[in-house]
C-alpha cells in the first residue's frame, strides 16, 4: 500500500456532512478507491494475524477450541475477547469477566454513531453491518478521503479481517503449545502499530486532531492504573472535546 499519497492529507471540512463529498472529489478517483482496498486488505491480513495470539491466550486460559472460536465469531472485537480469556484464565468471576469484556466493547457504540452517517446502511442490513463495527473497520473507514472510499475500506476490512481473525483463532487455539509466546514474533506490536499507521494521516493533518490525540493519550495513561480495564479508553472519548477549543464555539444549551 502506498504511503497514502493517493489519499490527500486534508482534513474533512469541520462539521461538513459526510454525504456531501462531491462527485469530482478525491473520493471518486480510481487511485483513492484502490488505496481503500489496499488499506482494508492490509489491515485484514496484518491484524488478523493477532488472532493467533488470541487463540493461544484462550487455550492457555482453559477455553476449549469451540469456545474460543464461538467467541471470535460472536464477539468479534479483540480487546473484549482477550479480557474475557484473561479473567477466565486468572480464575476470576465469570459475571465480572463478562461485564468487563462487554464494557470494553462500549467504544464500538461510539464508532457506530460515527459510522452511521458514513455507511448509510438501512433496514435489516444494519443488523449484519453492526457486527463488524470495530476498531479496525472504523480506523480504515475514517482514514479515507470521502464517503465512497470509506464504505469500500470498511467493507473490505470487515470481510478480510472477519475471515483471518476467525481462521487464526482456530489455528492459534489448536497450535497454542507449539506457537509459544506470540510476543516472540513481535505480534503484540502489530495492533498498536496498525492503528498508528491508520491514524497517521489525520494526526499530521490538523492541529485539532493532534490536540485530541494528545489529550486522549494523557487520559489513558492517568486513568489506566486507577480504573477497570475498558473504562480509560471510553473515558478518552472526552478528549474529542479538545478539538473544539480553538473554534471558540459558544455553548448553546441544547439537549
Amino acid at each position: 500500500m502506498t504511503a497514502r499519497e493517493t489519499a490527500p492529507e486534508a482534513p474533512r471540512p469541520p462539521g461538513g456532512p459526510d454525504g456531501a463529498a462531491t462527485a469530482d472529489g478525491p473520493d471518486e478517483t480510481d487511485g483513492a478507491h484502490a488505496a481503500a482496498v489496499r488499506d482494508g486488505l492490509g489491515v485484514g491480513l496484518a491484524v488478523g494475524l493477532s488472532g493467533f495470539a488470541f487463540g493461544a491466550a484462550a487455550a492457555t486460559a482453559g477455553l476449549s477450541a469451540a469456545q474460543a472460536c464461538v467467541l471470535s465469531l460472536l464477539a468479534f472485537t479483540g480487546a473484549s475477547q482477550f479480557a474475557l480469556a484473561g479473567v477466565i484464565g486468572g480464575g476470576g468471576g465469570l459475571v465480572a469477566g463478562t461485564l468487563g469484556a462487554v464494557l470494553l466493547g462500549g467504544r464500538n457504540a461510539l464508532y457506530g454513531l460515527r459510522l452511521s452517517g458514513l455507511l448509510r446502511v438501512r433496514g435489516a442490513r444494519r443488523l449484519l453491518t453492526a457486527h463488524v463495527v470495530i476498531d479496525e473497520t472504523t480506523a480504515v473507514a475514517t482514514a479515507q478521503p470521502g464517503p465512497r472510499t470509506a464504505r469500500t475500506g470498511f467493507h473490505v476490512t470487515a470481510v478480510s479481517l472477519y475471515l483471518t481473525w476467525n481462521l487464526t483463532t482456530l489455528l492459534g487455539v489448536l497450535g497454542a503449545a507449539r506457537l509459544g509466546d506470540p510476543g516472540t514474533f513481535g505480534l503484540d506490536v502489530l495492533g498498536p502499530a496498525a492503528f498508528l499507521a491508520l491514524l497517521w494521516p489525520r494526526l499530521t493533518a490538523g492541529r485539532a486532531e493532534l490536540r485530541v490525540a494528545a489529550a486522549a493519550g494523557a487520559i489513558a495513561i492517568v486513568a489506566t492504573p486507577l480504573l477497570p480495564a475498558g473504562v480509560p479508553v471510553m473515558l478518552a472519548a472526552a478528549a474529542a472535546l479538545a478539538g473544539f477549543v480553538p473554534a471558540g464555539l459558544g455553548r448553546r444549551a441544547r439537549r
Binding site: 474533512r12 464508532y111 476498531d135 490525540a213 489506566t224 479508553v233
Partner: peptide
C-alpha cells in the same frame, strides 16, 4: 464534529493502553 473526532481519541487511547 465530536463524533468525527471520537475515533481519533479512542484509537489513540487504545494505542496508548
Amino acid at each position: 464534529r465530536f463524533t468525527e473526532l471520537i475515533p481519533v481519541a479512542l484509537l489513540t487511547a487504545l494505542i496508548t493502553v
